[in-house]
């Protein structure tokens, strides 16, 4: 290629880049409108009249809605519950799913494929088909002292259901990754006299941290925003309320106080956004589809 031709090629490339940027910026602006409206409105004073015209950009930085929300007793309760529920659930769910995925990918036992097919089958069922019997099962677990309603309205019950409903999907996801770890690597452990647990902890887990991390982050976000199960299982217990329940309730009780609803929404959203921005470069998205397509 002559220098002249190369220059031309470069200019054309610059112009194309410029157009892509412009197009994406406009698209992103339109995409962000709901967020801009939410942010702008959280700085408004709604009281009984809605501000007219509606705002896209904030006209003032009035943090009183945030102040109001933070000083509300039940916001702190909801925040505490959401943090505790989400973190405990993710840790337990990730651990149990990793164990299961190891069993289904590395150990031969009769009926393995059939059992795994049952796991896959449950994934096709609509999420809350099971909520009524789950409620009944939890209600009937009454052997723990001090809980007359069984596990209804208790943190333990909610976490149990969260962990249980996430196992099949996570096992499927992780099994795909564990299968890609070369068998030869585990042989060195076997030579040293180690069993399955040594292979699991010393080879599989360390090599799969990107996959496990990705799964953990998606699980974290999912449990953080979970609404329906929480509403059915702990919605009646004031002390167990979670952030999504609180948001919906704020909207129901103060129909016109949108600044409170939006301030609380933004507060609930900030941790998730920070988490995603930090982790986005390390997420292994490709693997999400791999298991499904190759199977």
């Amino acid at each position: 290629m002559s220098i002249n031709k190369y220059q031309k090629f470069k200019t054309r490339d610059r112009i194309t880049q410029g157009f892509i940027w412009l197009f994406l910026l406009i698209a992103l602006f339109i995409f962000s409108l709901p967020f801009l409206i939410m942010i702008a409105s959280s700085f408004e004073e709604f009281s009984y009249v809605l501000p007219y015209p509606p705002k896209i950009f904030p006209t003032s930085l009035d943090f009183s809605a945030y102040q109001y929300i933070i000083t509300q007793h039940n916001f702190l309760t909801a925040l505490k519950n959401s943090v505790i529920n989400t973190s405990i659930t993710v840790v337990i769910a990730v651990f149990i799913s990793s164990l299961s995925a190891y069993g289904f990918s590395r150990i031969e036992f009769p009926g393995r494929e059939a059992l795994f097919a049952v796991y896959l089958f449950t994934l096709m069922m609509p999420g809350f088909l099971n909520i009524i019997p789950q409620f009944i099962v939890l209600k009937n677990i009454t052997f723990i002292p001090g809980l007359p309603n069984g596990l209804i309205g208790s943190r333990f019950g909610l976490i149990l259901i969260y962990v249980a409903t996430s196992i099949c999907g996570n096992t499927f996801f992780l099994r795909g990754f564990f299968k890609t770890v070369p068998k030869a690597l585990s042989e060195s452990v076997v030579v040293d006299g180690g069993g399955h647990f040594s292979i699991f902890f010393r080879i599989i887990l360390p090599l799969s941290t990107p996959a496990i991390g990705t799964m953990g982050i998606f699980a974290l976000q999912g449990f953080w925003e979970e609404y329906f199960t929480a509403k059915v299982l702990v919605g009646a217990n004031e002390n167990m309320i979670t952030l999504p329940l609180l948001l919906q309730r704020l909207n129901g009780e103060h129909a016109t106080r949108w600044e409170w609803v939006f301030a609380a929404s933004i507060l609930a959203l900030i941790p998730v956004i920070i988490l995603f921005i930090i982790s986005q470069k390390k997420l292994v998205i490709g693997g999400l589809t791999q298991g499904a397509v190759k199977e």
Partner: peptide, 20 residues
């Protein structure tokens, strides 16, 4: 295999398959 799949299997049986 049991030590690995049992915790998950119990939870799935009690809270997913039985409810179904």
């Amino acid at each position: 295999a049991l030590p690995f799949i049992l915790p998950g299997l119990i939870l799935v049986t009690v809270f997913i398959i039985y409810p179904m």
